[in-house]
Structures are given as structure tokens and as C-alpha cells.
Nucleic acid binder design. Sequence first.
RNA 1: GCCCGGAUGGCGGAAUCGGUAGACGCGCUGGUCUCAAACACCAGUGGCCGCAAGGCUGUGCCGGUUCGACCCCGGCUCCGGGUACCA
Length: 921
Amino acid sequence: MEYNFSDIEKKWQLYWASHKTFKVEPEPSKPKFYVLDMFPYPSGAGLHVGHPLGYIASDIYSRYKRLKGFNVLHPMGYDAFGLPAEQYAIQTGQAPQKTTAENIKRYREQLDKLGFSYDWDREIRTCDPSYYKWTQWAFLKMFSHWYNKTSNKAEPIDKLIREFEDNGNGKVNAAHHCGFEFPAEAWNRYSEKEKEDILMCYRIAYLGETSVNWCPELGTVLANDEVKEGLSVRGGHPVVQKKMKQWQLRVSAYAERLLEGLNELAWSDSLKEMQRNWIGKSEGAEMEFSVFNGRETFSMTVFTTRPDTVYGVTFMVLAPESEWVDKLTVPDKQKEVREYLAYVKTKTERERMTETHSVTGVFSGSYAVNPFTGEQIPVWISEYVLAGYGTGAIMAVPAHDSRDYIFARTFNLPIIPLIEGCDVSKESFDAKEGIMCNSGFLNGMTVQQAIPAAIEEVERKRLGRRKINYRLRDAIFSRQRYWGEPFPIYYENQIARPVPETSLPLELPQLESFRPSQTGEPPLANAKNWTFEGNPLEKSTMPGFAGSSAYYLRYMDPRNAECLVSEQANCYWQDVDLYIGGTEHATGHLIYSRFWNKFLHDLGYVCKEEPFKKLVNQGMIQGRSNFVYRIKNTNTFVSLNLKDNYETTEIHVDVNLVQNDRLDTEAFRNWNPEYQHAEFILEEGDYICGWAIEKMSKSMFNVVNPDTICAHYGADTLRMYEMFLGPLEQSKPWDTNGIDGVHRFLKKFWRLFFDKNGNNVITGLLPDDKELKILHNLIHKVEEDIENFSFNTTISAFMITVNELTDLNCHKKEILESLVILISPYAPHIAEELWVQLGHTPSVANASFPVYNAEYTKEHSYEYPVSFNGKLRFKKSFDLGMNREEIEKLIREDERTEKYSEGKTIRKIIVVPGKIINIVV
RNA sequence: GCCCGGAUGGCGGAAUCGGUAGACGCGCUGGUCUCAAACACCAGUGGCCGCAAGGCUGUGCCGGUUCGACCCCGGCUCCGGGUACCA
């Protein structure tokens, strides 16, 4: 029997599916293990070889854990709501429901070919009403809860209402409040609308006006993590800032817990660091400055991390969008300020960024008083101060802040150095070090001493308070789109009301047109009867991250119609033990999911505070593009090494027409009518192509389809080769050329069981020590490698082992059985086939991982204490059968011994045949 | 600018409690099989010198610690990722 991967793989894939080999249920007698892949968005392009990388790794780990006796939950589903399907719908008129279903079907076909051990009975789709019911449900819970900073968790809004009725809001310590204090009597007198407006300020899911990222091209708002360098992540369209009333999630309330929680997670340091930066905690103080606009005096608050530099504050700056701008602009500055604000408005976010450090600003005409020096200082307006951070106003210390410095230099404002010996003639001195001067009571202190001392003084004089600020903003949760979860919210007399839980899911209606309505409203305005009990429903939908924020919980109990996840299922599966996915979700999905989980934890619906215990980021697989070189203004193409003799244009050529960088010239002529009469200048009979590593994409013609590879080499070869390519977490280029080596290995592996004529050569002879040593070395290596996610080096170990056994002509059943189990996570189809050939019933997935016995791998050795020149003493295991004289001679002859031996004691010497390689003190 | 990560043959990558650098695979060269090619198998393969034995050199650059450095320390260069006026 030949190694016929095609038949074998088809056969076992069918077998596993029909026998539901990988179906799991909670089994309290067995330890659980939850392995999760970040579920894919089913795009129309299908999978390329880069996509399954993480899935292969997680599958290997899942299969390994099963062999180790764990009850493994390994599910898969689809993140099916999203922009591309909707854009496609707008262009073609095809309903997203339809194209999404088709894409999912294609994804499933591709995934099925790779032999994954998913429990497909647990499949979920975020666009399925029975799934998004629970997304809507969670939203309603957020709507009906507020964040109590005293208990440090989310609490029911009803409880808050009772507190308002009894005591007003004076004692309430909420993450966010309405901005003013009211007593119980006042609350009870408020109209219903007034009450609801106040409550809205407390809710965790709330409707609020903020400056949002508006993408005119897409006609929707975007979250911060959906914008990169002023362009939308999806599509790359420009994004501008706009004030709008939008649904938001009070993620900021959880900032400290999101930060703290990172410490206990087994995530990479770089990823944790990214999240820390995104959360952006900074400690400092809020300080009040009194400001006078010529008629009235106000108290204005600023946030600073450097209260120690207060003696150097020589001016103040407001953000252009700050509400203080109006109050502080004096009459004869009105025109100038208005012009400046108009100018700022014309700039998009992107322009603001590209013109970094351009200095613009305008004087408001008002003056503040520095509370420590009593000096009058001007109040300016400038775009370098952001409305959304801190209080939207700063105290400027040009001597010790580079941005303030540049501003002061531009507008000729005074610069007062506050640290002894610092030179501020050319640039500011930003470091938090040195001895304070020109700073009153702070003089003589170090900066590190002065910061807490200044805060204390500020608090004592009642000029301000200690304050911690976070960069993390609330998540904007509305999208002016069709293909997303509808909000379970309707409006009654302008008041947002929740659709009752019993009416969930609130299903997305079918539409004819997916464009914004005539009046510029979101597409849902086109729906007939988009109402609830006669009242209009919310017309925007939820963003992409809504459906992916709690999907890992739903997998635990995917068909439960009563709740998101039953207590029993949640208690058994608990949390994700291993999560594999791309690093691009670091500041989006992975923050939102953690927030969502913490919220549900506060309410008691889930047992764990953190959803993902360990996280591994697989690297990207890049494409290897090939080029041909066309001689300018001709239809002649010149081979790589001759191209310097001509003036040429580099043209991407489909990598499928190229083998080992040699172009199939005939196929090239047929590829594109433009090239059908192409002429070639060859070198040594071949056309050699140039190459480069680029992103795998259609436009570069470097996409390699896993289906093609499977047809050619089989899924087992593909799985092993993807792992063999390099470390999982590293980005690396795909190169189809190397795949032969792995395929050869599997054929060689097959030949341990069958000879060239297809005869079974397995023998029942008992293995000898040498063979056991080879086997147990491998067991040890495989175990260690899988635990460390070093899948690439395991493959090498397999290759070496198979070579060794081939050399020994070893076909012993006992050895081969273990070998089949060891390889089964990597190459499950061939393993299953050989497992049966060894006389077992399927499936090899139910076998046990071989137990490593260190006795077999021990070197034959003996302890040998050595003394040298009466001064040195050695004690080391030698594997060489050398006698004392030989060893001493070696030591004496080694030049390092002499250098080393002066007055020191040698503890250990490592010897390899004929050489001392290691002498240790 | 700031934060994180990386740099090893023609290529992907092994080897980090500091101890034979280049495992394994690709590619290449030579050979066996074949009329021939493909497949398969065997051997060689960092560079320089040498018929060989062998020698010298070698992990981005400069310097340091050490008997010994891809590995540790100091100073750079380049590449990748994140973030960007966050006060």
C-alpha cells in the first residue's frame, strides 16, 4: 500500500464527522481544557494558507491535551456581522444574509479539508438571531446598570433610583455622574424626562454626546481602535471628528480593573504592554485656577502630572472645543478666536497628525492667576490641547514640557527654569530628575520629593486634589449601518426605553436598500414598521465587536434558549485556557471582551473575572511574490540575472506559474491575453524570476490557497509544514518550495509500516535499549515542545527519529504505536490510518499519550572525581569510557586549564570525545 | 518622538543557567537508478587557504566583562510591530 493521502484523509474526515468523534459534554470526572481560536470573519475571498496557521496550532494543542486525559472544548464559529458584506450588498443588491451564508459554507469546506478536531455541534454565528439575542440581552443589562466606585462593581439602576429618592445623589460614588448635586426633594420633583436624562449619565450603556470618529465615506462612526493614522481600518477612508449623540459603553469605569487584571494573565509581555499603553494610566493632580475675563471670575480646573512645576506656569491653554472658550474670550478677541476655531475645524484628524508639532494658537484675552506665585498669566487657545483628555485645559510649564516650550517660543511667552543647572535655551528639560529651584517651598527638594509635596500643599490649600487619569475612552457603540445587531431600544416621547427581555431577540428586518435613507438616516430607516408597540426603534446597529465580546461564553452552552450560558456549563468550562489569534485585536476585541466579561461577572452570570487565561499570538504568514522583468516598450521579458543589461519594468507574476523561481513560460503566455505573444530572454534555458516578501494578497498575485496544497500534498503535509515554517508567534514568509521535505518525511514515516511493495512490515519483536532510547527522547521532546508552543522544532525531532529508526530497520509494533500517537496531533489522518493498521479501533484521539521514562534516555555514565596539580578538583559524569589518565591528559593539554587554574577551584568539566568543552568554577 | 520585539549560511530557521554555532528542512553540487527526464535514494554544502591532513575566520556594527559570549553589560545602525500633541 502506498501512502495515498487523498483517500486516507477523505475517509477519516468522513469517519470523524459521522461518529462525532470530537463532540464534548461536561464530564465532571475529567479535568476540562478550553482551547479557542479567534473566530474568523467569513470574507468572500476564502482562506489563504496564512489563515489556518493559528487553527493548526490550536488543533495540535487540543489533540495533545485530549491524549493527556483532558476533556477538551474546542469550538469554532463565525464573526458574521460586518462591513464588507454590507458594502458588497450596496454594490450588488445581494442581501448580506445570503452572501454571508455562502461565504460561511465556503469557509467550512476549506476548514473541513484540514482535519480539525472541532466540535461542530457547538458552531455559532453572530448574525444568527438565537445568538445575537444574547448580545442584545447583555446590552440591556448594561443599560440597566451603573458603576459604583465604592463597591467597585456594576449595580442595578433601580437601586440607584431608590437612593436618589431617599437621599439624592450626594453620597453616590459613581464612575460617572450628571455633573451637579441634587437632594432627594429635587429628584422627586423632576419630570420623567429630566430623571431619565440624569440616569443616562450613570448607565453603563448610555446615550451621550461626544466627539466621534466620523467616516463620511462609510457613512458611520467608528471606535478608536477602528481608526489608524486618521484612516478607517476597513477600507482606509479618511475620518473626521464630529459631535454626535451616540450609544456608548462605559468601558472607562473598568479602566483600573482592566489594568490590574493583566498581571495575572499568561499573555506575552508586549501584548500586555500594548493594553497598558492603551489604558494609559497617569497619576497627578487636578488644580483650580481662578480666571478673569474682564467682567467675571471663574474657577477653572486643569489636570497635571507635574504639580511640582507649578511655579513655572507662565500661561494656560484651552482645547479649541473646550466649553471654557466662549466664557473666556474677551470682546475684542472674538473675531480672532472665531477665525481660529474655524481654521481648526477645517482640519481632519489625519491632517492634524501629519502636521505634528506645527504650532498654532490664539490668545483669549483672559488672564488666570497662578495660585502659588500670584502672577497673572494669559489664557491661550490651541489645538495641541485635546478636549477629550483630562479637563481639556492645561497649565503650561514651558521650561519642562516640550510642547509648551515650542508654544512659548513661538508666541514669545516667558520660560522659567525650575531645576538647578538645567539649560532651557534650546529645548525644555522634561526629565523628572534634579533639584528644584525658583519654586518657593519646594526649593532644594528632588523632583521625586517635590511631586508628592506639591500635591499635599495643593490639597492643604484646597486648590485641588490628587487625581488619576486614564487614556481609555468609553467605546462608541452605535454604527449607522444595516448589517449588525439592532439595539433593543425604542423611543417614547424622546426617552430611550428598553425593549423587554421577553421580546428578544429583536430581529433585523429584511431590506430592499442598504443605503442610508433619503434623509441621511441609517439604513434601518428604510424598514417598514421599524417600531415597537407603535414607538420608533433605534435605527443604528451595534458595531463589529459587539458579537465577538462574549462568544467564548456561548460556546459553553450554545443551544440554551433560557440564558447566555447555564451556571452548570459555566462552572464546568469556566474560562478559556488557551486563546490563539492575531495581535491585531490587542486594543479592540481583547479589551472589549475583558470588559464585557467583567461586567457579566459583576452581575454574577459568569464565574471568572478574566476570560482568557493564556493567549498566544500567531504571526502573519507573508506572501512570497515573484516578478518578471519586461524590457521597456517591448513585449520581451528578461531573466533575473540578465535584467541589468536592459531598462526594465518589474511586474508581479502569479506565483502559481512559478516553481523554484523558474517561470513556466507557456503558462505565463496563457495567463493574460496581454502576454500571449511574450518573448523571453532566458539564462541557461530557464526564465528565472525575482522575488520579494510581501503581504499575501490578490493584487500581488502571491496568494496560495490551502485547497491547492491539500490536493497536491494532503492536509497532514500542510499542517506539518505550516508548523515547520518557524516559530508560531513570528511572522514568516510562505514558500511552497520547502513543502517537499515534509511530504518526503511522511512518506518515509509510512515506510516504517509498509515496504515499497505495500506489504505490512510491522513486527511484534520487543524493542531494544537503543530503540527505546530513541523513542523516549522523542516523547520527551514532543511533550516539552507542545507545552512551549515550539511546534517547529518538534517536526525536526520527528524527522530525526524516523531517520534513525529507518537506519536501524526497526518496524517494531511497540515503538510504532507510540510514534503514531505522538504524531497524531500534527498529522491526524495518517496517524488514524496507521493506528488502525496496527490493529486498533479508531480513534487514535482516544489513546493515551505515552509516558516518558527518563531511565531509557540516561547516558551510560559514571561519576569521576578528578584532582589536578593537587589544587583542582573535578566531579563530572563522563560518557566516554575514558580512564583517569586520559582525562587528566586532556585537561593538562587544554590551554584553558592553565588560564583557568590560577588559584581557582574547578567544580565541573564537560568533556566531549577528545575535547574539553566546559570548565566551570 | 516614545514603548515593545528582532538581526545567525543562498533561503526558512536550530542552539540562550554563558560551554563543539549553523540541528532540521529547502536550494545547490556530485553520484546511484533511467534511453532520458521526473520521482526516489546516497554523499557533500558558512567563508577563505589547501590535493589532503589541517589551518584561519565567522552569529548587524563598536567597545567591555569572562578561561570561554549568538547569549551578559555599555554605546550605535538597520528592520518589524504598537502608539502618537494624553499635559
